[in-house]
């Protein structure tokens, strides 16, 4: 194997520090026993984690975020899988248009999206509702799922499906027994990525929440605007931990690098 030169090693080191330092600081601050942001912490205390449980606003926001991410990722998956199958294998007119349309939330600046969603939801009378929020998040996370599922659809062997048909399988059986298991790594990977994206989303969500549907990122954002105590750090630490656990589970099941690099075949 080729070894990296000292320059490359130094570069990677600096890069890793740059990426990880903020996380380390946040986690460190979360364990402080004092009432202000302090790093390195002067002692170790779970005081600020207990404070989360005592703060109904944060608990409610976390619950909203969790529900929202679950529903949005699942609904978006239900749309993206058939769409990916059609786009990946079909040769119908307007195939590229459909694909660009579904991918467009990635290309439009999120602030623009936020304003557009705000107007739309107000016109529809859905502003501030959980349903409206769910609709918008579904749109935002769809491209992530579509990308991953498309990558696995491309590796799909059409003749395997034909073989199943020739043996008497119905369309639904073919999908359930042959197609879906083959693209499952892409579907699960896409779902997880969508879940995390929705769970983290701030820029668009800020425009379309009201106090009863405030999500965790929005709650954190507005909390920081008013006060700066270590509560934000402990909440962030829990969110980071949650994301990491999710990633590890997916990695164990399907191999994260394979999913994200987009190799369709297992």
């Amino acid at each position: 194997m080729k070894h990296n030169g000292p320059f490359a090693v130094a570069f990677l080191l600096v890069f890793a520090i740059f990426m990880l330092a903020p996380i380390v600081v946040v986690i460190g601050v979360a364990f402080t026993p004092t009432g202000f942001l302090e790093f390195p912490p002067s002692g170790l205390s779970l005081r600020w984690f207990r404070a989360i449980l005592d703060n109904p606003d944060f608990m409610h926001a976390a619950w909203v975020s969790l529900k929202l991410a679950l529903v949005a990722a699942t609904v978006a998956t239900a749309f993206a899988v058939p769409a990916a199958l059609a786009i990946g294998r079909g040769s119908f007119r307007g195939r590229e248009v459909v694909q660009s349309l579904l991918m467009s939330p990635l290309m439009i600046p999120t602030v623009v999206l936020g304003i557009a969603f705000l107007r739309f939801l107000t016109v529809m009378g859905l502003n501030g509702t959980f349903f409206g929020l769910m609709l918008c998040h579904t749109v935002i996370v769809t491209p992530f799922i579509l990308r991953l599922v498309l990558a696995s659809v491309v590796g799909l062997d059409k003749s395997a499906e034909r073989a199943a048909i020739s043996m008497g399988a119905s369309d639904w059986t073919v999908f359930r027994r042959i197609t879906l298991p083959t693209i499952l790594p892409g579907v699960v990977g896409g779902w997880v990525l969508a879940f995390i994206t929705s769970f983290d989303e701030l820029t668009v969500t800020v425009f379309i929440t009201n106090p009863s549907t405030t999500t965790l990122p929005v709650r954190l954002f507005s909390y920081i605007a008013q006060t700066t105590d270590p509560l934000v750090a402990s909440v962030s630490t829990v969110a980071i931990l949650f994301t990491v656990v999710l990633m590890v589970v997916v990695d164990r099941l399907y191999g994260l690098d394979r999913l994200l690099i987009g190799e369709g075949k297992r």
């Binding site: 062997d157 003749s159 395997a160 073989a163 199943a164 020739s166 042959i178 298991p181 083959t182 297992r266």
Partner: peptide
């Protein structure tokens, strides 16, 4: 009964 060029086995 059909045998395909790529065998078309169900890999899972």
């Amino acid at each position: 009964g059909i045998v395909f060029q790529t065998y078309a086995l169900f890999l899972h």
